[in-house]
Nucleic acid binder design. Structure first.
Length: 913
RNA sequence: GGACGGCUAGCUCAGUUGGUUAGAGCGCCGCGUUCACAUCGCGGAGGUCACAGGUUCGAGUCCUGUGCCGUCCACCA
């Protein structure tokens, strides 16, 4: 055999020092994350490499490198880090670090969200608690100062916590949904939509929160079940049913299905005089198909001012609408003697009156009724007709000469696959939401937020009649109008209006910035599936409309984090895992792994502290693997050259395993299979590298070991880095590298192409596996026979195959060394059966272990093995007896089955012997 | 009412286009600490892949139906 030199190139940016300076050969036995994490993060941050501009400047990535960008879903400025943030930061950081190492121009933009309603109500609560004051006591300007101060203080907390997760965000670009630039973006967007006729002011039914004194959007209304009495009331000749008699004062329309035979004699539009709560009314009959004939009596009265469905009926038939309840949730004068009462409190008295008047037919107790609650504040929603600002999603406008609507734009961005949603099934959810989308109410009556860029003044100039609005002049603009008497609309915008601009407003829009040109559309939007409607859909709406671009190419939706029983984590249940607690206890890397591995997109993750502890153990394992390599070997060099003849089977094997790992992990990351990538890495690290290769390296000494272990550790740390940045960077530093792992070049397949080729794609694997199998078989046989580990025994191996005898002889030292307890090894062609020895078979090879047998245990073991072989043989024989299988299955599969059968039969015969 | 998801080992979950004896981690059982790691090593037990049909030479995987659990949407007056 001729000598063959193979090269393994190592595309390092900076080489491992060859042991001289900087290598810490005195590493502690256990990795303690707390000793390193903060320092490491500081080092990264100071390096400036989170900023792609600096990467270009320092030639870490090429000027014209492919961009990769993510805009961080902004945490609430007043929030604190929870596991939802943690999983988002972990996944995005994996992508970002991977792409940065790959040499892409990688940008990850951080920001915080002002979270209008949530923040304002928090401050209002504090204000009341501490000073017994309301926002009105302070006035708008003073109150907003307080909110901003509160926001600023807690901003630092959440940012610091994000850094704890190791997130490699470009802090130099940090932004805030309520800062000046974003305000400009909001106003610009508003004006454009207004000018296109997409934003309009109108009196429509909205979700009104009487406690917070503001509207909330449809998506922020939660429905809760409530047990309540259900009242059947006499309404002239009809019986109507209601859970809310207190809203019924103004009811003067009675609605039924046009096909309902029971009410055939009543004609649409017919007026019927009847006695009602506060006296006689003339009710008008309305026929509408929305009525469910099966439900109750099939007849209902409507309250258009305070019910969305009733409102629609009233719109359809052009009916009168009357307000019954005021904005504080109290009854209006229409309620007669009940005026001024809180609606809920009035109920009993109203029912009493109905009863007295003989209008109460019956009460059904325990009726389950759904009530609407504001998801942000928790108070009951009372629908009201109010003048508000809306975005008309079905309003036509022109785009490139064609007529379209916002709804259509949202559909067209996803339907032809321009935007890919992972997992795919959420496409359906997305389209369903769009199909049912109603005009979006964007005005809020709270103070904290982007104030609506609309100004009014008393009408002065008759020439501006076309802008007439309720006798007032109206001005919509990016800047406040010049001139006397203009007063800005006091309302603020729904927080999702500004969030909808979030992929491009952070990049500087409406200015035509470089960032916008390079990084938009962004590469990935990674967020929880619970926020698909609130946010993802609205970003698609805004971006397609304002920029005529998609906001992102891929949407990756992670699941929600639940406790180990699958319950939602909540303070009241006491099952909350605080990421900061577990980071302190187990380290950031362990927390990250526990959130990423074992979770798939769109599916919830059940997290337990045991799981995190498991990954802490793994982190420590990696530390000790590295520690062993660093302290026992001379790490070196950028390019390696080996004589193939010098490499042992295990040397070649570990290099090819690494090659396969580089290939698989890269593919996984490109395809968003984060969990799978992590599992592969873990398997390689623990099973292949630690349990096999490092163990063999203790017995097989050759001149190539330094280099091989340099390659393996080098590439392994790089592959792990996106997942567990802290421990890998720490090891990298302790190994004497002066530069940061953060910006090292990601491993490439190309490095391994020569060894891949020269070994015919791993043609030595069967031999290597045979050695492994012999070792495992011996360990197993010993253990089953209860041979004490310390006891040394003699092994005799028979095989007719000469190559195998040579192979075994060549690996004698391994077979003896790797926890088999073999002191003496004899290798023969064929000999006598050895009585009283433990017996094992590996393919053609028979193994006798002499001097330690436990006869009963051995008999039992052999019996079990025979039964196992017999079972498999019968199954395979049956398969092969099946003529159709042989005829129809691919020849390759049939051949495999035949080979299997043959080898099992041989083994069985030997064992039986 | 509509839609979606899950059901694989005691627990938490992988299982890509159908094809070796269905895998992993944790837990459990047995044995073991000088020599990287007890946050460890070696070995082992444990599964009718929810159920019933169907397609196929062959189904955890594809189709139909059923059951249980979960989530979202709708909001029945």
């Amino acid at each position: 055999m001729g000598e063959k030199n193979i090269k393994i190139s190592n595309p390092v940016r900076n080489k491992f020092l060859s042991g001289a300076n900087g290598v810490n050969k005195d590493l502690p036995k256990a990795y303690n994350p707390q000793d390193y994490e903060d320092k490491i993060y500081e080092k990264w941050e100071k390096s400036g490499y989170f900023n792609p501009d600096i990467c270009v400047k320092k030639k870490v990535c090429a000027k014209d490198a492919k961009p990769f960008s993510i805009v961080l879903p902004p945490p609430n400025v007043t929030g604190h880090l929870h596991l939802g943030h943690a999983v988002m930061l972990a996944l995005q950081d994996i992508m970002v670090r991977y792409h940065r190492m790959k040499g892409d121009k990688t940008l990850w933009v951080p920001g915080t969200d002002h979270a209008a309603i949530a923040t304002q109500s928090k401050v209002e609560a504090l204000l009341w608690e501490k000073e017994k004051k309301t926002r009105h006591d302070l006035g708008r300007i003073e109150f907003l100062k307080r909110v901003e101060k509160f926001a600023k203080d807690s901003h630092d907390t959440i940012i610091k916590q994000c850094k704890k997760m190791g997130a490699s965000l470009d802090w130099s670009r940090e932004i805030y949904t309520l800062d000046k630039e974003r305000n400009l973006a909001v106003r610009t967007a508003f004006k454009k939509m207004y000018d296109d006729g997409l934003i309009y002011q109108g009196a429509r039914i909205v979700n009104w929160d009487p406690k917070m004194q503001t509207t909330v959007s449809d998506d922020e209304v939660e429905w809760k079940e409530e047990k309540t009495p259900f009242y059947y009331l006499k309404y002239g000749p009809f019986v109507i049913a209601t859970a809310r008699p207190e809203t019924k004062f103004g009811d003067k329309y009675v609605v039924m299905h046009p096909d309902d035979k029971r009410y055939k004699k009543y004609k649409h539009g017919e007026k019927i005089k009847l006695e009602w709560i506060n006296g006689p009314v003339a009710a008008t009959v309305i026929k509408d198909k929305v009525i469910d004939m099966e439900f109750g009596s099939g007849v209902m009265t409507i309250t258009p001012w305070h019910d969305a469905i009733d409102f629609e009926i009233a719109q359809r038939h052009n009916l009168d609408k009357e307000q019954i309840i005021d904005k504080e949730g109290k009854l209006l004068p229409i309620a007669g003697e009940f005026a001024g009462m809180e609606i809920r409190k009035a109920r009993e008295e109203i029912v009493a009156k109905l009863k007295k008047k003989g209008l109460l037919v019956k009460i059904e107790e325990n009726y389950i009724h759904n009530i609407a609650v504001n998801a942000r504040g928790g108070s009951l929603i009372e629908p009201q007709i109010m003048k508000q600002w809306f975005i008309g999603v079905n309003q036509e406008f022109k785009r490139g000469g064609q007529k379209t609507t916002l709804k259509k734009l949202m559909q067209e961005a996803v339907r032809p696959g321009k935007i890919k949603i992972i997992p795919e099934r959420f496409n359906k959810t997305y389209f369903h939401w769009i199909d049912n989308l109603r005009d979006w109410c964007i005005s809020r009556q709270i103070w904290f937020g982007h104030q609506i860029p609309v100004w009014y003044r008393e009408h002065k100039n008759t020439k501006t009649q076309k802008h007439k609005n309720n006798d007032k002049e109206i001005y919509v603009g990016v800047k406040a109008p010049e001139g006397e008497g203009w007063i800005q609309d006091p309302d603020t915008l729904d927080t999702w209006f500004s969030s909808g601009l979030w992929t491009f407003s952070p990049l500087g829009w409406p200015q035509k910035t470089e960032d916008l040109k390079i990084y938009h559309p962004t590469s990935v939007m990674e967020t929880g599936y619970d926020i698909l409607f609130f946010w993802v859909a609205r970003m698609i709406l805004m971006t397609t409309y304002l920029l005529d671009e998609i906001p992102f190419k891929t949407v990756y939706l992670h699941g929600l984090i639940r406790d180990e029983k699958g319950k939602k984590m909540s303070k009241s249940l006491g099952n909350v895992i605080d990421p900061l607690d577990v980071i302190k206890k187990y380290g950031t890397d362990a927390v990250r792994l526990s959130l990423v591995i074992g979770s798939t997109p769109g599916n919830d993750v059940k997290l337990s502290e045991e799981k995190i502890a498991g990954y802490r153990n793994f982190t420590n394992k990696l530390w000790n693997i590295s520690r062993y390599i660093i302290t026992n070997y001379q790490l070196s060099i950028t390019n390696y050259r080996f004589n193939l003849e010098d490499l042992t089977l295990f040397d070649k094997w570990i290099l090819l395993q690494m090659r396969n790992l580089v290939l698989a992990v890269s593919e996984d990351l490109e395809n968003y299979h984060f969990s799978q990538a992590g599992e592969r890495l873990r398997e390689f690290t623990w099973d292949d590298l630690a349990d096999w290769y490092l163990e063999t390296s203790k017995f097989e000494k050759n001149s190539s070991k330094n280099q091989i272990l340099s390659i393996i550790l080098n590439d392994l740390l790089k592959l792990w880095h996106p997942f567990m940045p802290f421990v890998t960077e720490t090891i990298w530093q302790e190994a004497g590298n002066k530069n940061l792992l953060l910006i090292e070049k990601y491993p490439v397949l190309d490095s391994y192409k020569e060894i891949w080729k020269e070994t015919n794609n791993g043609d030595f694997y069967p031999e290597m596996i045979l050695i492994q199998k012999i070792i495992t078989a011996i360990r197993n046989a010993r253990s089953e026979n209860k041979v004490e580990p310390a006891k040394k025994i003699k092994a005799v191996i028979y095989t007719k195959i000469e190559e195998y005898r040579k192979l075994i002889r060549d690996h004698e030292v391994l077979i003896k060394g790797l926890k088999t307890g073999i002191s003496e090894l004899e290798i023969k062609v064929k000999g006598e059966k050895i009585a009283g020895a433990i017996y094992a078979v590996v393919g053609d090879i028979e193994i006798y272990l002499i001097g330690a047998i436990d006869k009963d245990k051995e008999k039992e073991r052999i019996k079990k093995e025979i039964a196992n072989y017999e079972k498999m043989i019968v199954a395979t024989e049956n398969k092969l007896k099946n003529k159709e299988f042989v005829a129809k299955a691919p020849a390759e599969i049939v051949k495999k089955e035949e080979e299997k059968l043959k080898s099992w039969q041989e083994a069985l015969e030997k064992i039986k012997g």
